[in-house]
Amino acid sequence: MAPTGHESHRRSHRESYYERTDERHYKPTPHAQGAWSPDEQHFGPVSGLLAHVLDRHVAERPGPGLALARISYDILGRIAFEECEVTVETIRPGRTIELLEAVLRIGDRPVVRARAWLLASLDTTAVADSPFERIPHPDTLAPWTMGDTWGGGYIASLDARRVPSHRKGRTAAWISSTVDLVADEPRSELASYLTLVDTANGIAVQQDPTAWMFPNVDLTIHLHRTPRGPWTGLDTSVTFGPSGQGVTSSVLHDVHGPVGHAEQILTVRPIPGT
């Protein structure tokens, strides 16, 4: 992860998703509250916290800067709204290619594992290209109140702008948040961006979430360049299969164009009593 884009000042007066309680432990604030249940953490802030810890781990080491190329999260169980511990381990060290793993635990139980591939950066501007078109700039879109569909403190913390869509399971949206990841700690643009990617599963719903559940059990993000700026752009399609599985697929953007892709596997089931 490239240790660039960090804000240089501390902002103790600002709201945050987490408060650090010691070197490895973090307490969620109400802004991290989940959309499916008020006593769970939303995976968006959780994914951002893991990226933040990985980012700081890389920034504190000597040696050449490496850029995040892929981060994959596996959700191993319910993410209770409780204090959590995050640890980092180097799985495959290297000067040009490296694999790191961060684990989030609640109590003694691992709840989320994140693995990040870091690659050396070099100048390939001459051949840089993508076949994906840009999505409309957020300044051209009206604000969208996600709280009309979803509850929870995390959703309430977002500024969302959505491209109108006439097809279930298909839309594009921009997501931003002024809430810090960890109180009194500078955040990188990359960690802030990654915090918002999980929101993709809530912007192009196939079915009413009061009648159907479709939480994701993973999130995998591939980046062909490091995103910049405060907006996370999601050009998203959601597919439900006939046997209880679904997939949320997104082309990721910043305001300068496409930056990568994200995939989420869903477990689809009716809510009991509906």
Rank of each mutant, 00 (worst) to 15 (best):
M1V: 06
A2G: 09
H6C: 08
S12Q: 09
E19S: 12
E19Q: 14
R20T: 08
D22M: 11
E23G: 07
H25D: 01
P30H: 04
A32D: 05
V46R: 12
L49Q: 06
A51S: 15
A51P: 00
R56F: 04
V58N: 06
P62E: 04
P64H: 01
S72G: 13
L76R: 13
I79N: 13
I79V: 14
A80L: 12
C84K: 03
R92K: 15
R92L: 08
G94S: 07
E98K: 14
A102C: 11
L104H: 07
L104Y: 09
R105A: 11
A114T: 03
A114P: 05
R115W: 01
A116T: 08
V127W: 13
A128I: 00
S130D: 14
P131N: 01
P138L: 03
A142M: 08
W144H: 14
T145N: 13
M146Q: 06
A156D: 14
S157L: 07
P164M: 04
R167F: 03
A172P: 13
S177K: 05
T178Q: 08
T178K: 01
L181E: 03
P186C: 02
R187L: 10
R187Y: 00
R187K: 10
E189C: 08
A191L: 03
S192A: 14
L194G: 06
L196A: 06
T199W: 11
V205C: 09
Q206Y: 02
Q207R: 14
D218R: 04
P230H: 07
V238F: 01
V238N: 02
F240Q: 05
G241N: 10
P242S: 13
S243T: 12
Q245E: 05
V251T: 15
H253E: 12
V255R: 15
G260H: 09
I265G: 04
I265D: 00
I271V: 15
